[in-house]
Design a binder for these strands. Sequence first.
DNA 1: GGCTACAACTGGTCATACCACTTGACCACC
DNA 2: GGTGGTCAAGTGGTATGACCAGTTGTAGCC
Lengths: 241, 241
Amino acid sequence: MLTPIARQTATDSVFDQVAGEIVSGELGPGDILPSERALATALGVSRPALREALGRLAQAGLVQIRQGGSTQVTNWNDVAGLDLLPRLLLVNGEVDVVVVRSIFEMREVIGTDAARLCARRADTATRERISNEAGAMSISDDPAELAPIALRFWRQVINGSGNIAYRMAHNSLAVTYEPMMDIVAELLRRELTDVRAHQELAAAIAAADEPRARELARHVLRLSEPDWKSALIMIGAQDDD
Amino acid sequence: MLTPIARQTATDSVFDQVAGEIVSGELGPGDILPSERALATALGVSRPALREALGRLAQAGLVQIRQGGSTQVTNWNDVAGLDLLPRLLLVNGEVDVVVVRSIFEMREVIGTDAARLCARRADTATRERISNEAGAMSISDDPAELAPIALRFWRQVINGSGNIAYRMAHNSLAVTYEPMMDIVAELLRRELTDVRAHQELAAAIAAADEPRARELARHVLRLSEPDWKSALIMIGAQDDD
DNA sequence: GGCTACAACTGGTCATACCACTTGACCACC
DNA sequence: GGTGGTCAAGTGGTATGACCAGTTGTAGCC
């Protein structure tokens, strides 16, 4: 399987390195970064490239920049937004099980409410698209093939909910688990292969049955909960159930 | 009330202007931006400053940059994460009521589940902090004074939930409504002034009573639902209830 | 002790030159 | 006609050096 070779820019390298030091705790809240000139020299890049990275780190909520002052690490737990989540999945080369668990939990909560709202708000075309995607899930029982279909299914559901925050949070979550999509698909096997449950949900949405859509969405999104929970325990999470 | 004068950098100005054109639809998905050299000249800034802005626009999911190619507007509805939400609140100088409604809905769903998980997972110190913040809510019945306390209350609840995605989504939401905090506080008056409800929730969390915490959180977070809903209708939202 | 001026340092920007990559056109060969 | 190679023009990526704008600390004066 051939994939494109992606050359990493200097700016990306700097961003990755500094962000990694911050989220891993090597650089803590309040720590002062060296001056731009010193940092550019230390990292072997030009100052403009370094500045690009710093601007992005500031946008990600990891540092605060003040002209004439110095660049300081934030208490990013309190200020960084959901877009930082992909950076937290792997810390020091290891999967952070709290991040994985958080993703599944959030996926369930948002998906459930999105389905409820979708039953109320979606237009006819969206309801049809949801039914079509639910139907398309019968083409295979391989999770790797079903995952993109399910993603499209939920995207339509969230579209139909009319809640743009759910839309964008869903995007943030998807970007986070995309690098381990095959593993996620396997963990969600029970959900992905239950075509009938998806179709019943699509039917409840089509029928504008809000409580039923909510109940079914919750059911679907919980089908694989035992599997991902036990997998997380296997790789180190505390069992809190 | 004097506030610090924030001088806007050229990079910030470029970012704001281009992001505004994209989210307002003036620049649509697939549109090609002029070359960096042409755009820098057109906007009257240097190319490095322009590049800093473009890198940030790419990070925000609004454009895609390819070396040797051109910079293209994404279908950002499908790729931008939650951190873009503040940019969507005001479009063409007007409040987007869908964004406001989305925030309130998401706040309720995440807050409810966070309280449930908090009852299960929080350590003793966090439970105490939650109780302390609930207690602190009796110092006033002015929403403007209560809003920061409530924010801290919910921040602790979300801390205690152990769900980092909720944490960061909450940060993203907070940044979005912060510029209109006084209006939001007024809309949430019924919630913010109901000290007893907050204290009962804190007690349920302290008692590790998960279902009760969930029920009470939902109750608290829905107290002001009629108010924000009618306010949204007044400024133009469709009533979909 | 408080105020002012200055120097040193930091971040912000600009101009210029050059490097790396992409695309399209053209040519040669099979 | 299809494939591969080369070249030119254009785009993004980077570096260097100079200068501007803001911040902080120190010294001197009253």
